[in-house]
Design a protein around this nucleic acid. Structure first.
Length: 491
RNA sequence: GGUUCCUUGGCCGAGUGGCUAGGCACUGGUCUGCAAAACCAGCUACGGCGGUUCGAGUCCGCCAGGAACCUCCA
């Protein structure tokens, strides 16, 4: 089958066949978190979306350089000249060094991403480590006459840019609309137009995040870091730029404008945007305060949570929706995902128990093709998962002796399932049972009890048999009777 | 107010102009000492009103409801 990958490109609003700039190599840049708070459920969406893309591109044989930045400067708490840097504000509140805050939340972010089995990007650059590169861009844009200095700050001249370029090509906006719809905000007297954006901001006296420059002691503007770091590590033209839909405007639009001025062309060929996670129909986000942190998800300690959810459950939940659709949080949905995933992983581990036959009663080739068709269609993980559940059904039927595969087909099925479930979807099968914990004493004790139960059953002593089963279940041991004995696992 | 998008069965969530999405839940059956798991079968659907079409959740228009962005946000 031909393996043509189609990706939805926000620039064209269409699915386009993916063709890398350099054969066999892919440059992927994704907007990472602003590290001024604990990672929440919303942060998992882009992380997982682009993790799967990263994994799939590698599976297809591409050598991928994946850059995901850490934003540790430059975001203003409120617009206008009175704005205070988010990191600085948090540092002031917590009486910590700004870099201490940044380090703390960076560590937290990375460790939660690890728990979600998200592969580390090739490079995780920090904005604060690229001040020089950002200042170079400011100078470049100034020298080309598309920025102006005002009271120690430097602003991008959107109106002038728009004379020879199309500001709004990504987000579908135009400058006239922006003029009429932008709100009146205080402290915008430095700007010529409300839609101009800062490349460099002069720091107020109390502002502690600051770097020297010929304009002022200050800090780089909102959108500059991505232009600087993507160009530095991926070149001035790279393949894919990703991020949340909420960054489409103004962040990515400004990024395109900046990079276009510097390099004469848009920085990325394909722009991909993941949709939001909602809760009660509303976007889960910092500003609304309606977010659930990953710590809370994994511990269950939050008013909205009926139970805790494992990292893999969260991951599976997110993969069961297409990345461009909103996904609504609910306990019911998470619980459904958890059960479905357990069934999928159970079948996956049972692959090893399957025995080959002379003939095959279902087509592994067809299943395989369907999986790749789903992935190639804009990384459609929900459809992929639907096909994997067909595989689950077939695997279980084989276990029940109602389906069969030849030895060759069985090998293909095992490879396919391993590629899809483990390599691409990134589910980890750390079976938290017999072997996990590796407590031999515990294992043998449970086996002993269950063997006693087998004896009780043989004697038709149902009371004893049920007592052993019920009490072990109460302790969290799942028991399945089989034809010639039992299986058990720890929940 | 401007721009864009969404509205699918008990819940979550795919999708194409005509053929079962899938998961969870539920119902019946098989298996089981009884369960659990598994297998088989069934179940509830495309916001409303018009239009295009041989045929429309799928295209067009209007209406209703909701969301995102326009300000930091994944």
């Amino acid at each position: 089958m031909d393996n043509k990958l189609f990706l939805y490109n926000t620039l064209s609003r269409k699915k386009e066949e993916f063709q890398p700039i350099n054969q066999n190599h892919v440059g992927l840049y994704v907007c990472g978190p602003t590290v001024y708070g604990d990672p929440h459920l919303g942060h998992t969406r882009p992380a997982i979306t682009f993790d799967i893309l990263f994994r799939y591109l590698k599976h297809l044989g591409f050598k991928v350089r994946y850059v995901r930045n850490i934003t540790d400067v430059g975001h203003l708490e409120s617009d206008g000249d009175t704005g205070e840097d988010k990191i600085a504000k948090k540092a002031r509140l917590e009486e910590l060094e700004p870099m201490e805050v940044v380090q703390h939340y960076t560590n937290r972010y990375q460790s939660y991403m690890d728990e979600l089995n998200i592969q580390k990007p090739s490079i995780e650059p920090r904005a604060s480590g690229h001040i020089i590169e950002q200042l170079e861009i400011v100078e470049d844009i100034l020298s080309k006459g598309l920025a102006y200095e005002s009271n120690g700050s430097v602003y991008f001249d959107v109106e002038k840019y728009n004379e020879s370029n199309n500001y709004g090509e990504l987000s579908g906006r135009n400058i006239e609309d922006l003029l009429s719809t932008t709100r009146e905000l205080d402290g915008q007297t430095e700007k010529r137009n409300s839609f101009d954006f800062a490349l460099w901001k002069k720091a107020a006296p109390e502002h502690i995040m600051r770097w020297p420059s010929r304009f002022s002691d200050g800090f780089p503007g909102w959108h500059l870091e991505c232009s600087a770091m993507s160009a530095k590590y991926l070149g001035t033209e790279f393949d894919i730029h990703g991020g949340g839909m909420d960054l489409l405007f103004p962040h990515h639009e400004c990024e395109i404008a900046q990079s276009t001025v510097c390099n004469g062309h848009t920085p990325a060929r394909y722009w991909m945007h993941n949709n939001m996670i909602t809760i009660d129909g509303q976007k889960m986000g910092k500003s609304l305060g309606n977010f659930i942190t990953l710590e809370q998800m994994f511990s269950g300690e939050h008013d909205k949570l009926e139970q805790s959810y494992s990292p893999m459950t969260v991951r599976f939940f997110i993969m069961q929706a297409h990345y461009r659709s909103t996904l609504d949080f609910s306990n019911e949905a998470l619980q459904a995902s958890q059960k479905g995933m357990e069934r999928l992983l159970e079948a996956f581990t049972n692959l090893d128990k399957l025995e080959a036959s002379d003939s095959s009663s279902f087509s592994v080739k067809e299943l395989s093709d369907k999986c790749y068709v789903a992935l190639n269609d804009d990384v459609n993980t929900p459809i992929l998962i639907a096909h994997l559940f067909d595989a689950v059904k077939n695997i279980n039927s084989m276990l029940a002796g109602k389906a069969s595969l030849t030895s060759a087909d069985l090998d293909v099925l095992k490879q396919l399932m391993s590629a899809m479930v483990i390599d691409i979807l990134g589910l980890s099968v750390n079976i938290e049972n017999n072997s996990a914990g590796n407590d031999e004493l515990l294992s043998e004790s449970i086996n002993l009890l269950l063997n006693l139960r087998v004896d009780a059953k043989a004697n038709k002593d149902w009371a004893t048999a049920d007592k052993i089963r019920n009490e072990l279940q109460a302790l969290g041991v799942e028991i399945k009777d089989t034809k010639d004995g039992f299986e058990w696992s720890v929940k």
